[in-house]
C-alpha cells in the first residue's frame, strides 16, 4: 500500500474521530455535526478507495479524480459559509428580540416597584394613623 494512501486514510480517520469527539463532548450541536460527519465519511471513502473518486469523475465527465475532489471541497465550504451566515442572521434576530424584551421587562419592573413603594408608604401612614386612634380608644375607658 502506497504511503500517500495510508496518510490520506489516517487523516480522514482523524477528522472523523475529531468530529465524533466534539459531538460527544457537546461542543458541536447535532444539526451541524451531521454535515461534518458526512464530509468525514466521504474523505475516508475516497482515502480507502481512490478508484471511487476516479470512477465518479468519469461518471460526471471530470478529467481527473483530484479535480472532482477539489470541486466537491469548494462546494462543501461554500454551502457551510452560506449556512453559517444564515445562522448568524438568525442569532442576531434572536438577540435583538431578547434585548427588546429585557428592556420592556426592566421598564415593567421599575413601574411595579414604584407602585409597590407607593402602596407600602400609604399602608404605613395608614397604620400609624390607625395605631394613634387605637391608643386613644384604649385610653379613653381608663380615664
Amino acid at each position: 500500500m502506497a504511503g500517500w494512501r495510508i496518510l490520506s486514510i489516517v487523516v480522514a480517520g482523524l477528522v472523523l474521530l475529531f468530529v465524533f469527539e466534539m459531538l460527544r463532548r457537546r461542543k458541536l450541536r447535532e444539526k451541524y455535526a451531521g454535515m461534518w460527519l458526512l464530509v468525514g465519511l466521504g474523505v475516508v471513502v475516497f482515502g480507502v478507495f481512490p478508484g471511487s473518486a476516479e470512477g465518479l469523475a468519469r461518471l460526471v465527465g471530470v478529467q481527473t479524480g483530484s479535480n472532482l475532489v477539489f470541486f466537491l471541497a469548494g462546494a462543501v465550504l461554500g454551502v457551510v459559509c452560506l449556512h453559517l451566515s444564515s445562522e448568524v442572521g438568525h442569532l442576531e434576530e434572536e438577540t435583538r428580540t431578547a434585548v427588546e424584551e429585557i428592556a420592556l421587562l426592566r421598564c415593567e419592573l421599575e413601574r411595579t416597584r414604584a407602585e409597590l413603594e407607593a402602596r407600602v408608604a400609604a399602608l404605613e401612614t395608614g397604620a400609624q394613623a390607625g395605631a394613634g386612634s387605637n391608643g386613644q380608644l384604649v385610653s379613653h375607658p381608663r380615664g
Binding site: 434585548v99 429585557i102 428592556a103 421598564c107
Partner: peptide, 24 residues
Amino acid sequence: TVARLAVNLGVGGAMRTGYRYAVA
C-alpha cells in the same frame, strides 16, 4: 418612561421596542 436596551440595536430595534410597549 425609559426602556433601556442593553446593546445598541439601531433605530429599528428601538422602535419595535416602542411598538411592543404600546401594544402591551
